[in-house]
């Protein structure tokens, strides 16, 4: 029915559209090879043209690689890691949260104790420890990030389940002989899921930042594969000479994260309205 977007939604959509162009459209264009080194073209500024006539829209890095194509590739890597990690944590968190909330008792105590334990260990420290042992890889990074960030989904899902399980449509179903699996699948999951998507859009931003910080520390994505965090780390040595090396990936990171934050807020507002109506 409604075709109009709220201001918040509009901003979120615009920001994410910019990111979509960078991550999806740019790689399709005839751009330079992100791995292609050209030492003679190194450290060109934004819009810089080399002596042999190569044009670099966003300049080049220390090894003369095209910043635009590296930024796009890094964006793909980050988004991929972010989405898979969110998927992993969503599945774990929702499952544990629904189980804890529906069955209560010792099961709930164990699951929520696990959540507390998880929160009491600093996540970055844990990630550093794990990557140090297992060794860094894109898939590994996604799984580790996912497994360690289920708590917010679990908490919210449990909280909602606690109030939903006393709602009369669930009591009715129980009286009619519905099993726990039936109630969780038919009633709880569909009612909890919209809220979970809000949590997910918020968590996505967190995970992207976390991945960037790990890569910055050299524990995340490994070269020659680029990552925004790694690009910032490389660029910081040249802040005075070529500030765009560190600034460009930072801006990209900022746009993606703030876009998802706004999206999450827009979702929240819309859902509040639905509850009132």
């Amino acid at each position: 029915m409604k075709a109009r977007f709220s201001p918040l939604q509009t901003i979120a959509i615009l920001l994410l559209a910019v990111m979509a162009v960078l991550v999806i459209v740019v790689p399709l264009l005839p751009i330079y090879d992100p791995y292609g080194q050209n030492l003679s073209d190194s450290l060109l500024p934004i819009g810089g043209r080399s002596f042999n006539g190569h044009f670099y829209l966003l300049g080049t890095d220390t090894l003369g690689r095209d910043m635009l194509s590296r930024l796009a590739l890094a964006g793909q890597v980050s988004t991929l890691i972010g989405l898979s990690a969110v998927a992993v944590s969503l599945v774990i968190g929702v499952t544990l949260g629904l189980i804890a909330g529906y069955f209560r008792g010792p099961i709930e105590a164990i699951i929520m104790g696990l959540a507390d334990l998880q929160l009491s260990i600093p996540r970055v420290l844990l990630l550093i420890a794990v990557t140090a042992i297992v060794g860094p890889s894109v898939a590994g990074l996604a799984i580790i990030l996912g497994v360690t960030s289920w708590v917010s989904y679990g908490r919210v899902a449990r909280g909602m389940t606690l109030s939903l399980r006393e709602r009369e449509f669930i009591l009715s179903a129980r009286v009619q002989g519905a099993s726990a699996v039936w109630n969780i699948r038919q009633h709880l999951l569909p009612n909890v899921l919209p809220q979970m998507l809000i949590v997910a859009s918020y968590e996505f931003g967190m995970i992207i930042v976390l991945e960037a910080s790990l890569s910055y520390l050299g524990l995340g994505v490994q070269p020659p594969l680029p990552s925004w965090g790694m690009m910032v780390a490389e660029g910081q040595n040249y802040l005075a000479l070529a500030p765009h090396l560190a600034i460009m990936p930072s801006i990209a990171l900022f746009i993606l994260v703030i876009g998802f934050q706004f999206l999450s807020q827009a979702f929240t507002k819309e859902n509040d309205l639905e509850m009132v109506a």
Binding site: R167, V175, Q176, A178, S179
Partner: peptide, 17 residues
């Protein structure tokens, strides 16, 4: 689950049921 089908309930709140 089989037997409780003979004993059913209607609750107060038509909105949350």
């Amino acid at each position: 689950r089989q037997r409780r089908r003979d004993l059913q309930v209607v609750f107060q709140d038509p909105y949350s049921s």
